[in-house]
């Protein structure tokens, strides 16, 4: 598969009041076309900075970010974003919230078909009948579903999800994981998911990138076998347990709680999972 997103050797430093704060140092992330890559790492390691790089909201000091082989130099209209905070516009109905990107991105779609597409997306995530409600009338999980539709309405090349399910309760979150698989089946996209949840990472993604502590570099990449729609039972198999153990160990190394040398003694990757260290 062709690499849609190719981030190579990115370094970036923030200038803050207290001085220079290196956030990224040696970041390499590749996402295949149609693939779904999860990025995990310790808190505050620069995961959100990564999303801003892909969206073109931030240009790195060094290294390059390529989408479709083209170097990113500023915001492009072909990304969709969803955050932990669904940031819906309270004064608009759900339908008009979903349509927002089409008011900015040039589109040839006539108004009627735009609406039809928005309604189709809403029903795909289970929000049929809520098109004319205000965001304040919806629960947290439903708002996040609407936010997802807004991120997909303009058929972006890349869907960037920055901890979208982080603020939801466990059951709602698992519901939404399944919704994500359903959406991906019907509305194929290339996705980057920032998350703290290792189970979420291996359930949704086909590749998991572990970042080191700040400044973040790519520490470990896990290829998840068995991509495509799966159900929650998959999280309770021996293979899943092994992958989770492996990832947890990598996170401990990233947090500095386990010495990096011991990575050789880390549990062997599950059969079929191709794992490669990036030291």
């Amino acid at each position: 598969m062709e690499k849609l997103i190719d981030i190579r050797g990115v370094r970036h430093t923030f200038r803050t009041r207290t001085g220079l704060l290196p956030v990224l140092d040696g970041l390499d992330v590749a996402v295949d076309e149609g693939g779904f890559t999860a990025v995990v790492g310790p808190s505050g390691c620069g995961k959100s900075t990564l999303t801003r790089l892909i969206a073109g909201l931030l240009i790195p000091d060094e290294g390059e970010v390529n989408v479709h082989g083209e170097r990113i130099t500023g915001p492009r209209s072909n990304v969709g974003m969803a955050f932990q905070n669904p940031v819906l516009l309270e004064w608009r109905t759900i339908l008009r919230n979903v349509l927002l990107p089409l008011e900015i991105v040039p589109t040839k779609l006539p108004r009627k078909e735009q609406e039809a597409r928005a309604r189709r997306l809403l029903s795909l995530v289970g929000l049929e009948g809520f098109e004319d409600k205000r965001p304040s009338e919806l629960s947290g999980g439903m708002r996040q579903r609407a936010s997802l539709c807004r991120a997909l309405i303009h058929q972006p090349e890349v869907l960037i999800l920055d901890e979208p399910f982080g603020a939801l309760d466990a059951f709602t979150r698992e519901d939404l994981w399944q919704t994500m698989h359903e959406v991906k089946r019907q509305e194929p996209f290339t996705g980057v998911l920032i998350t703290h949840d290792l189970r979420e990472a291996i359930f949704l993604a086909d590749r998991v990138v572990v970042l080191s502590g700040r400044p973040a570099r790519t520490q470990y990449v896990l290829e998840v076998p068995d991509t495509g729609p799966r159900d929650l039972d998959h999280l309770y198999t021996a293979e899943a347990a092994e992958m989770l153990n492996l990832l947890r160990h990598q996170i401990e190394i990233a947090q500095g709680r386990a010495p990096a040398e011991t990575s050789a003694e880390a549990p062997a990757p599950p059969p079929g999972a191709a794992a490669r260290g990036m030291h």
């Binding site: 073109g56 915001p75 990304v79 974003m81 900015i104």
Partner: peptide, 10 residues
Amino acid sequence: EYRDILRSLG
């Protein structure tokens, strides 16, 4: 995030 949603679309 409000700003980012719109800015990322140009």
